[in-house]
Amino acid sequence: MPQLDPSTFAPQLFWLVVTFVLLYLAMWKIALPKIGSILQDRQERIDDDLEKAEKLKQDAEAVREAYEKTVAEGRNKAQDTIRAASEKMAAEAASQHAALTEKLNAQTAEAEARIDAAKEQALANIRTVATDVTQAAAGKLIGREISEADAEKAVASVLDEERH
């Protein structure tokens, strides 16, 4: 087995040390810092972008909150206006209703007074007509004239009887 030939050990070990140390130096001093720095740059860039996105999101959130606040305020204001208007209208309606009621009551009272007067007058007329009719009818029935006073008395007694 060629691997176990000790005479080949020295040159292999020598060149292993030389190449490995050179590779180590190349990696340590050149390649790895290069890759590391670009990876770090990229990470920073990504973090920066993420930060920016976060800030924009917060800004958008603030704008949304302001908008919602404005909308809520507007809604409250509108409700206040509606409430005030409806209260005013209710008060107006109530006052108009009261005025109308008063007017109607007055008209009713006046109409009732007029009816009472007409009734009085009608009753008075009835008495006169009844007296005339009684006088004429009695004259026809008994063949002689009866005095107006007697007729009136008779009518009054009947009417008063009716009334009581």
Binding site: A10, P11, Q12, W15, V18, L23, A26
Partner: peptide, 19 residues
């Protein structure tokens, strides 16, 4: 003995290629 052998050649190739 530090002769440059085929082993050393491929070690050097590795060094150059990786770099």
């Amino acid at each position: 003995d530090v002769s440059f052998t085929n082993s050393a050649l491929f070690m050097s190739l590795t060094l150059v290629l990786v770099t």
